[in-house]
């Protein structure tokens, strides 16, 4: 069983919520049968830590002195699709990239809090980001095929992992899983640059799953695609869910509603004095509830189009 734990202590400790807001929240809580605090964690207390794919607590990401996103608490269960939505600048991509340490590539980026992957802290100093990324693959906003053949694109991950034999099988099964095999099986040695945008993005997915990861991170994978190509990717995600845990960042609320099991709504908090913008996790619950009956007013405003 999953229970949403309101954590009153954190709320009262947190300086981020004003007294008025707190009072309002309490009032709402009194009406609602379930008490849910905004920006708070979902903790699967009945699921062993090692069964959760990710357990994020109090995660903040900084770029230099600038805090891009703060105090994120999320638990990700296996073989689900989790969508991260929110207005631009809310830090949802930043959070996504901290799941496979892609933020390491930005010299000034720094992470606070803990991000457990199967109970192992991803930011432990013994952890090698390369090993992390081989288990947690990534698909990017813009399709980015390498200027190589289709075959070499898909075989790239296994090859850098040192695999030399059986590449043909890996390429074939990955392309099949990515629903691309039938279209490209006769031109595996042609350059990937000549493919359409939708094909390129499915190739990126094939490339990501060829390394046999457990998790796929998708950073607005459809934002550069037309509606038909988008629909194909969404279909594909529903199929991939049987094998992979998927996290997707999207600016398209309908897409989140269509494909995801759970949705996290991020928003921006503006500091009046310094005009600094920090991303916060407002609400994280199952998708149906978030879009039909959100607990937080800000979520409601966003999904009904009054804000964002």
């Amino acid at each position: 069983m999953v229970r949403l734990l309101p954590s009153k202590e954190r709320l009262s400790k947190g300086s981020r919520v004003s007294a008025e807001e707190l009072a309002a929240d309490v009032a709402v809580d009194a009406v609602a049968s379930e008490q849910t605090a905004p920006t708070d964690a979902i903790i699967d207390d009945d699921m062993p830590e090692s069964d959760l794919v990710f357990n994020v607590s109090d995660l903040s990401v900084y770029y230099g002195d600038f805090r891009a996103v703060r105090d994120v608490n999320m638990a990700i269960r296996p073989k689900e699709i989790t969508a991260l939505i929110g207005p631009s600048g809310c830090g949802k991509s930043t959070v996504l990239r901290s799941f496979n340490r892609m933020n390491d590539l930005i010299p000034t980026a720094r992470v606070e809090g803990t991000l457990l992957y199967r109970g192992v802290d991803l930011y432990d100093e013994r952890v090698d980001p390369v090993e992390v990324r081989r288990r947690i693959g990534m698909v990017f906003q813009k399709p980015n095929p390498f200027p190589k053949s289709i075959y070499d694109n898909v075989a790239y991950g296994p090859r850098v992992a040192g695999q030399k034999k059986g590449l043909d099988d890996v390429v074939e099964s990955s392309l099949k899983k990515a629903a691309l095999w039938d279209e490209v099986k006769d031109r595996l040695n042609e350059s990937a640059i000549g493919m359409s945008g939708g094909q390129q993005q499915r190739l990126s997915i094939a490339r990501a799953i060829a390394g046999d990861p457990e998790v796929l991170l998708m950073d607005e994978p459809c934002s550069a695609l037309d509606p038909i190509a988008t629909a194909r990717i969404e279909e594909l995600m529903a199929e991939l869910k049987d094998e992979y845990t998927i996290l997707i960042v999207t600016h398209n609320m309908q897409q989140a509603a269509r494909v995801s099991d759970r949705t996290a709504f991020y928003s921006v908090e503006v500091d009046e004095k310094s005009d600094r913008r920090t991303g916060i996790l407002v609400e994280y619950t199952n998708t149906e509830k978030l879009f039909s009956n959100p607990d937080d007013e800000r979520t409601e405003n966003y999904i009904t189009g009054r804000f964002g």
Partner: peptide, 24 residues
Amino acid sequence: SLKQGAYGVGATKWDVIRTQVLPF
């Protein structure tokens, strides 16, 4: 984007230099 794509599937820095940066 090429470098990120390679890092994203678990390439090491040297892999990225060897297979993406230098050829391009």
